[in-house]
Each structure stands twice: as structure tokens, then as C-alpha cells.
Design a protein around this nucleic acid. Structure first.
Lengths: 350, 350
DNA sequence: TGTTAGCACTCTTGCTACTGGAGTGCTAAG
DNA sequence: CTTAGCACTCCAGTAGCAAGAGTGCTAACA
């Protein structure tokens, strides 16, 4: 069977109605719409076909029809028309986004909160994955008798630093030697490479000469690298799900919240998603718990290289067109903001 | 009317039963208890008295009795016997607490998660309020042509540092002069004093000489101070409330979650609470939304001076004895951990 | 005088039966 | 191919009923 023009029209109308009301939609309701000027019976026939084809389901015999995941997928791929945000909406978003101080993390967090407020969904934002970031330069700066500052500069321009308390006395010469050795060993390596590849064994010989300096510095170095690598997950609008009829069941709301509170796992899943705008609908999500959720993620770029994610989680019954447009606009905006110049002035990864 | 021995016994039994079951408790149930060897009728009479005195309430005529806030207050103040944790329980807590790396913030966060797991309640932990912390020493360390590291050392031993990108060239002399001027101006001031008291105006004259150095440094200095002052709030076990019958009503659960997601306000409220172990029961809480919650907070000390908070939020029907013991043990443990030596080796306030 | 048994009364909870409404599927006529 | 008509299904809401739990009161008892 093929999807006739009319079937598509009907399907679209059902989706539109269901998204709005969360109630199964019946033939009579549809036949009243001006663009569907057929009798209920005709529409019923078409709906029966659509159901057979897998686009609609039936909660029970005497209820209206509900779009299936397949229907939403079709809608997102083909039927949906990109909603262009009005100038006004754009202005609101842009203004709110730039109202924050120029701190990187704050801006990301803020983006998530804007997104959740506008969409009334649960939103999240992931700070960039620094897997691609490469170490450039490591320096140890003497401060006083038993404190030095460890400074790590990455290719992308991030500067991390940390005060290290030394258990043994040091000389500037030794410090400089250690700095150079470390830079020599780690330069060009990604942060994660540097982390797994504990090089302390490699310069065993030098270490002896440095009489324990490295033993103080290396653990702090590793810890700082971990901090640099760390991806932060911000979530906003957690309680928005309570307003969604699908989650008026307490146990559902609970398992949803539980899923969201497992931040590590969630972070991992989000990182693993492909870059660009990705929409996964209901059963398309591998996780059981997300089977009646849709997930929309998009990526933003920092300095054209590091990639962060931002998106929403909501019921499959979602205003895909509106939400994707908003996310698109947000990521465009973030990309602009983090393009080149502004990368330098903010704090390190943490 | 006075609270006879027997009345107290009955009240205590009602509280114990209600805490366990969350069901109004009736006279028959009570009369079956070995320690209350009276007929239901007798107990009914006593209960009627207790109700008149405000210790019990009645959901409806033919239901059992429920303890009032006043009853819980009496229980907490007088009736409750301190539960001594078993050696085993103590060991579990202590081991889990110290299984974390020696990072300060991580330990605090971990404490909250232990607390929520053991009590099955929603727990929170607040990192220390640094209002008392006093600045000791400010230094600017040259790194390369246009980067210097700003280092701030506080009396409590925290070292914060931040890389500052300079828009104008500098000399080491000028840098040192600025360091000294800043130290001179801010030494002995608390962080919050330093923040409110923007001293840039005070050394206007010197600034001219320093040709714009301060303009680069000061905003970063202020931002770093803010970071140092910042109190972090960790919450764990958010979804635990879903298992509590009191919150089986969706709208209640929602408003509870909403309250908890307003982190700033919550932080403020928690900071403002008195130090030491504080229990506020139901209507004793000024906030409407907490009128059927109890809040237990306790403070822990860092270096004997800075004060953080840890505690739980749960229904008024709570195992006060058990929970306070656990919190007490946790804070004792934290106090030990942060006593003296371990303060130095961790990262700055952020 | 304090305690207890007994009883009428109240209120909740769960069950059943019923009804109206919304919607479908099918058939037959246009 | 479209549509009107009709029988059928299922849900949601309501009313009624019975069982159960608990109370308050009264009167008898120690």
C-alpha cells in the first residue's frame, strides 16, 4: 500500500492534534478540520489503512488513533516543515544567552536553562569533550619555599593550573629541568593519552637526579589532567515532566527522574551520540526507560574543534519542528560565541 | 492536664508505629503491644486527652490517631533515646567515607550520598561558608609575554590561582609592585569584604603608573574571589521521596522537587540555619512548602573555623533517632578528617 | 475512681452494576 | 470511491452496597 497524498494529510493532522492534546484523535474530530473535508467514515477507512501500515496505533477498540514512533519518524524526516523563529524569539534567546558573564561554563549552563524554559521540556548541556585536545606546554613556576604552581597549556588555548605543595626542597634549575622533561614527554599527546600513559616510568633515570620532585608533581599533574578532561553535564527543567500527561503516573515519573539522576551514565550516552542534530524517537532509543521519550541532541563547537552537546528529553509527543529550530538557533549562536577570540579569557576546564 | 507516664508511653508507641507504617494508628493496635497492657477503651480515653492537648490529630472521625508536629517535637526533645550506631554500621560509614580520593569537595559530595543511601531520604551537603576566611597574600607570577598567574592565598591555607591574559605588556617590576599593593590593600580582609570593597578606586594614583595592568588583573581577581566564596550544594537521593507515601500525590512530589531545584535559595536557607545539630519539624519551618517536611542539619568544621553543613530533608514522619545519630557520626568523622593536616593538599575553593 | 465491655455511629475502601459518550468496523446505498 | 447508518466495544464516571476499622459514649465492674 502506498501513502497517498490524503493519507499523509490525515497523518499529519493526527500528529498535530495529538501533540497538542495528548488525547487519541478520532475520525469525527478530524473531519471537522477545513483541510480534511471528508466524512468521518472515509477518514476511518484511511486510518485503518494507516494503522495496518504501522503509522498509527489504537489504545483500545473504541478509542481514537495515536501516532506510532514510525509516524513521528516520517514526520521528522519528511512532513515537518522547519519552523523559522521569529525575529523576536531570536532576539530573546540571543539576549538572554549573552546576558551572562563571559564565563564559558556559565554560558553553557545558561543555554540549557533557556532551552528548558522555552520548550517546557527537560534540557541538558554537555561541556565539550576534550578528547581531541592536545597538550602543548607544561610549566612549573616557583612560588615560595615549598609551593610551586603547575601550569598546563593545551593546544586549544585552555590554561589549567594548580598549586603543588612540595615535600622536598627544590631549586629553580631542577624545576625547569622537570618542566622541560614533562613538556618533551607530553607535548602533542591528547589529554587522555597522557592520562593512560603514565610516563613516570619513562624518565626513571632523570627522576633519580631530581630527588623526588616528580613524585610530588606527577600525582597533581594527573589529577589536573583529569579535571581538564572532565565533562560537565548541566540539566534544567527537571520538574517539567510533571506537567506532561504521559508522566502523570507516579512510577513513570520516578523512573524518569532516576534515569536522569545517573549523571555519569547519561553523560556517556550523550557523548556517544553522533554529532550534529540527532533525533531519536521512542523505541529507537536503545534504553528501555527511554522507550516513550524522544531525545534531541545537537552539537556545538569550540574553537572549531572541541565538541559539546546540548539538547532536550521529552515525550515522543513533542513539537519536533519548534524544538529542533530552537536548538539549531542555540547551537549556531554558541558556535559563534566560541569561535575564536573568546576562548582565551576564561578559566580552565574545571 | 498533665502528661502522665502512661500518656507518654502511649504517645511514644503511636509515634513509633506511625513512623513505621505511615498509617493512622488505632486503639486496638496499641492495646496489643506488651508494654501497653490496657484495653482499647482505656487507650481511647488517653488518646482523646492527648488530642485535646495537641499531641495527636485525627484525619477523620473513624480513623486512628496521627502524631502532630508538637508530638514529634516532644519526642525529639525528651522521649527520643540516642541511638548508638553499632560498630559495624560505623565501620561501613567510615570506610565508605574514606574510600574517596583525598579531594575535599569529593569527600563532601560522598558524605551526602552515603547519608541518603543509609537513611533513604534526600540528603544535602554544603561546602564551607568562607565568610570567615581571610586573605593573606596575593601574588602575580609572570609566565610568558602576555600571561601571568594570579595567586591568592587565604589564612585557612587555601590557594586559588588563575591565569590572566594581559592586554598590555608588563615588566616584572610593575607586576611585583601591583602584587604588593594588592596584598597591602587586601591582607586581613575577609573574602566578602574584599569583594564588596572594590579597591581599584583607592589606588587610582598608582594605577596610572602601572599603565593598565590593574585593569586586566582586577576583574580576574574579583572573579576568583567569587569562586573562592562560592558555596557548593550537593544533593543526593532526590528520587527517594517517591517511595514515601506522603508524596504519592503527584502535585506534592512536584512541588517538593521544585523546591529542591531552586539551589540558590535552598543554599541560602541552609547557610542561615544555626550551627550544630538542628531539627525543624513540619510547621516549624518558615516555608509553606516544608510544612509537612522535617529538616535535620548539622555543621562540620574545617580547620576548626570554616563551617559547612550536612543534613536531610524528609517527611515529618521520620526516624529522628536513627537519622540524627548517623548525621552526628558523619559530622564527627568529617571534623576529624578536615582537622589540620589534610587541608593543605587539595585544590582551591572551586 | 479508674478500667473495661459493649454498642451505636462514622468514615473509608473496595466492589459491582449501570449508564452515557466517544469511537470503531462493517455494510449497503449513493 | 464516498458516505450514511447501525451495531458493537470500551472507558469513565457514578451510585449503591457491604465490610472493616475506629471512635465516643454509657454503664457495669473492681
Amino acid at each position: 500500500m502506498e501513502l497517498s497524498e490524503r493519507k499523509l494529510k490525515i497523518l499529519q493532522a493526527i500528529i498535530a492534534d495529538y501533540v497538542r492534546t495528548a488525547e487519541p484523535v478520532g475520525s469525527r474530530t478530524l473531519s471537522k478540520k477545513p483541510e480534511l473535508d471528508f466524512s468521518p467514515a472515509t477518514i476511518r477507512n484511511e486510518m485503518a489503512d494507516l494503522e495496518e501500515m504501522g503509522y498509527l496505533t489504537h489504545p483500545h477498540t473504541s478509542a481514537g488513533r495515536v501516532p506510532s514512533d514510525k509516524a513521528y519518524r516520517l514526520y521528522v524526516n519528511a512532513l515537518m516543515e522547519k519552523k523559522e523563529l521569529s525575529r523576536e524569539e531570536k532576539n530573546i534567546i540571543a539576549e538572554r544567552l549573552h546576558s551572562t558573564a563571559d564565563e564559558f561554563e556559565k554560558t553553557i549552563e545558561h543555554a540549557a536553562s533557556i532551552l528548558s524554559e522555552i520548550t517546557n521540556l527537560t534540557s541538558f548541556a554537555l561541556t565539550p569533550n576534550k578528547d581531541e585536545d592536545v597538550l602543548k606546554y607544561i610549566n612549573l613556576i616557583p612560588v615560595d619555599g615549598n609551593t610551586v604552581i603547575l601550569m598546563i597549556v593545551s593546544e586549544s588555548g585552555k590554561v589549567s593550573n594548580k598549586a603543588v605543595h612540595m615535600s622536598v626542597p627544590y631549586t629553580e634549575d631542577k624545576l625547569q629541568l622537570l618542566s622541560k622533561t614533562m613538556t618533551y614527554n607530553y607535548k602533542g599527546k591528547t589529554i587522555s593519552q597522557a592520562l593512560t600513559n603514565n610516563i613516570i616510568a619513562n624518565f626513571e633515570t632523570d627522576i633519580v637526579a631530581m630527588s623526588g620532585l616528580a613524585e610530588d608533581v606527577m600525582p597533581n599533574f594527573m589529577k589536573t589532567l583529569e579535571d581538564m578532561l572532565n565533562v560537565n553535564l548541566y540539566m534544567e527543567g527537571l520538574t517539567n515532566i510533571f506537567d506532561i500527561p504521559e508522566y502523570s503516573d507516579l512510577s513513570k515519573a520516578k523512573s524518569f527522574m532516576e534515569m536522569l539522576s545517573q549523571k555519569e551514565e547519561l553523560t556517556k550516552k550523550l557523548i556517544e551520540r553522533e554529532d550534529g542534530m540527532v533525533v531519536t524517537i521512542g523505541g529507537e532509543n536503545p534504553e528501555d526507560i527511554l522507550h516513550d521519550c524522544s531525545l534531541i541532541t545537537a552539537s556545538y563547537h569550540v574553537d572549531g574543534k572541541l565538541i559539546g552537546k546540548i539538547g532536550v528529553i521529552g515525550p515522543t509527543r513533542m513539537k519536533y519542528s519548534e524544538v529542533t529550530s530552537i536548538i539549531q538557533y542555540l547551537t549556531d549562536n554558541l558556535n559563534d560565541t566560541f569561535k575564536l577570540e573568546s576562548g582565551g579569557n576564561d578559566k580552565n576546564g574545571q
